[in-house]
Design a protein around this nucleic acid. Structure first.
Lengths: 336, 336
DNA sequence: ATGAAAGCGCTAACAC
DNA sequence: GTGTTAGCGCTTTCAT
């Protein structure tokens, strides 16, 4: 049961001062004019005693933990877990570690996570903010703690953030759906005020307009995050039983998965009777008999940029800059 | 730009000693015989100044960070992200936070993660160990740092762990496949020595034996984690082009997903020509024209138990106990 | 019942 | 070149 070896241990082992050892450990022997042979002796001791620096001591002193707090709606959602994977990887490269939490789109849970992460002194937050969490983000900004918003954003204030052009991506997808003879194009979206979702809806409507199709209120189906299955069934039943439309645009992959279950159950023929495009990828899309067309977000780029912004913020370069990336429309059988 | 308020701030604000405040903060005022009115005053100041304890200071003193390190093969894999979600939730309940990393089934990456997490002084590890990482785990045990193995385990030494009865689950699934008239039953597994995988293979062979079917070497197809797509295609081509078997058992969901892509491409009719059962769930399984039968692991129970064991370990009750849970076979169209 | 002080591991300012 | 020391926020022991 050997205790971890500390700087002090090495110092007393060698009969030198702690400071010297610290300098060598941090590779500042030149700058600090440590005698070369001394440095060599210390390096040897570090190896021999298998010294591993204690981050906690460092953290207490520096106020930095080299930890990033990641809050998403649900880490089990493939969209977020893919982002988490990329964030983790990029953070590790930069010498950071990631602690994560799922908000379930609840402002309360989010608040709790923020508090817990604050107590753990994370250096920065990367958050896919749930509705009603603007205050939490603002609060962090006030405390001068870097926050980077991903996927979502807030209209009423600026923050560091990375997201795609939701309006453009949706517009493009719906433009594609309206490209042929299909004129009755519906959308299933989340029932939330979050701007990224409203942008997708706006993009949908813009494309309709562009194609000379008059938007009909009943075409916009909404489902809540909490009751996605039930709401989706109810909303789609109105549109599909009997079939009132000839194309359908899903605002997220979870909505598409929920919707496809119903579509399959009701035996609606894709794409003959109904063309489909969804936002985001899902493994499930590949196995539907008509593989789904979808909007592909550059998850790795989003993650990399988010970590980059977070670290910039930690280094004091808070820029409140939002990076907007482009998504790609991947066409497959479901919208032929 | 207000600084965080510390115990010291409260103490000097009130003109009392730091110790007193510490007692009250930790709710030990009775035990420490703090005067009731004093306690009241301090509680008020804590509220007024919005004091939040600094975990780092606590950690340096206690040696505990209330952080658990989670290492899985790939957090983006739905199986692991679902576990991560449950672990996160359970850990939070117990006042712990989770940092995570993906090993990509590489012993080197795993080692690196262990080191990083050690530097961050995690109180315990929860690991789905990659092949060749037994030494890493043993090393942690030697350092008296609690480790809980999930999903996988090692034969040659005991450790805290939670997993399912892989042998039994596989045996049961294959028994089901062999229940009708199907006699040529193949399996696609990962090419690894890891016992949990070997157990699944052994279960498969045991079921064949039980059903009086002579195992054929060519029926056991193997794929490496690193080249899953290519290996799967190659291995399955041998079995399916032309069709040499009438049933196929996938050892994981990733293998099933890779395999189904080929099966779809080659137009093999499921279940008429080929019955299928897979280990683990995937959203994709629901959308295959013949929804897949699969072995359902109790992910939430695994996660809960893992966290429980980890915390027991932290509290000094290292028991080196392995909890073996039962999986459920969910039957659907693919194996009718 | 309250206060003073040491010490957890580390860095940095300063002294020699 | 090297050593000493204070201090980061906290808990805990020991005085008082």
């Amino acid at each position: 049961v050997k205790k971890r070896v500390s700087l002090k241990d090495i110092a007393s082992h060698l009969g030198v001062s702690i400071a010297l050892v610290s300098y060598v450990v941090n590779g500042r022997e030149k700058e600090k004019r440590v005698a070369p042979d001394m440095a060599e002796k210390i390096r040897k001791a570090i190896k021999d005693l298998n010294y591993q620096p204690n981050f906690i001591g460092k953290s207490l002193q520096s106020g930095q933990t080299r930890t990033i707090g990641l809050i998403v709606a649900d880490i089990a959602n493939p969209f977020f877990s893919a982002i988490a994977r990329n964030i983790e990887e990029e953070a590790k490269k930069q010498g950071y570690v990631v602690i994560f939490g799922s908000s379930d789109e609840s402002a309360d849970k989010s608040k709790n996570l923020v508090e817990v992460f604050l107590n753990h002194q994370v250096d920065a937050f990367i958050i896919a903010p749930a509705a009603g969490t603007a205050d939490q983000v603002r609060e962090l900004q006030n405390k001068k703690i870097p926050v980077v918003l991903i996927d979502r954003y807030f209209r009423d204030f600026t923050a560091d953030g990375v997201r795609i052009d939701n309006f453009g991506a949706a517009e493009n997808a719906v433009r594609h759906l309206a490209g042929g003879k299909r004129r009755r194009i519906a959308m299933l979206a989340y029932d939330t005020d979050l701007p990224h979702m409203q942008d997708r809806i706006a993009g949908y409507r813009s494309a309709l307009k562009e194609k000379g199709i008059a938007f009909q209120k009943k075409w916009l189906a909404l489902a809540s995050y909490q009751h996605i299955e039930k709401d989706t069934e109810k909303a789609l039943r109105r549109l599909l039983q009997p079939l009132q439309i000839d194309a359908l645009f899903f605002a997220t992959n979870s909505l598409a998965v929920a919707g496809l279950k119903k579509i399959k159950e009701w035996g609606i023929r894709i794409p003959r009777e109904l063309a489909i495009v969804s936002f985001d990828r899902s493994e499930a899309f590949d196995f539907f008999y008509a593989p789904l067309s979808f909007i592909s977000q550059p998850l790795d780029a989003i993650a990399k940029e988010a970590v980059k912004l977070a670290i910039s913020g930690i280094q004091g370069k808070i820029v409140h800059k939002t990076t907007v990336l482009q998504a790609k429309l991947i066409l497959r059988d479901s919208s032929k």
